[in-house]
Amino acid sequence: MKTKERESLFSAKNRKLIINPLNADNPITVQVLGICSALAVTAKLKPAFVMALSVVVVTAFANLVISLIRNGIPPRIRIIVQLTVVATLVILVDQLLKAYVYDVSRQLSVFVGLIITNCILMGRLEAFAMANKPWPSFLDGIGNGLGYSWILIALGFVRELFGSGTLWGYPVLPQALYDLGYKNNGLIILPPMALILVGLIIWIQRSRTPSLIDKS
């Protein structure tokens, strides 16, 4: 009995918690959570990256806190409790950013507050942290945060490169290309194009992972 409880910190089961959300159980492309923020903050790479980082931190710790107190939460008000924990963490992150990395906080502006409304958080708290031990919950939070992150960063990369001709704010396309008549694509900066890009990612992902396709 005792040996069973002493499961290693990174056992195969726990590793899966991190790896699964990156592809087969990706929060954006498979669970379809957190789409709105993925469209809103990815016009540029930098805000997409900082948003992704903040979401990883918040999902991990919200999962951890909820999992620690899961046995005392009255089921009837569990959503309110979850929301309170998420909101508290987000406000803490926001305050800390404002005090210690003011420049980053200015860059993010509204997006930090938007983390509260990110469906991934509530989804993971409800589906995982309420029923699992703290450590697996923490890993699940990190995994889902990372699954969200790589989509955001991929979108930010493509949209900034083709929309503004820059990456992380630095021009990367040679002037010679513009002299040949190349123009930045204004459409790609607008949210609808981000949705189409997400659609393309889902398409590629499903064609390579048959298990995701609904047989019926």
């Binding site: 005392g72 939460i73 009255p74 009837r76 008000i77 309110i80 409790v81 309170t84 508290t88 406000i91 803490l92 305050q95 800390l96 404002k98 005090a99």
Partner: peptide
């Protein structure tokens, strides 16, 4: 349920208020 909610709100409020004052 009421006690749980009340205590939670007080703890959170106190924590946030002190962090805000500190920073």
């Amino acid at each position: 349920v009421f006690r749980y909610a009340a205590i939670m709100v007080i703890v959170v409020a106190a924590a946030l208020a002190s962090v805000a004052m500190l920073l």
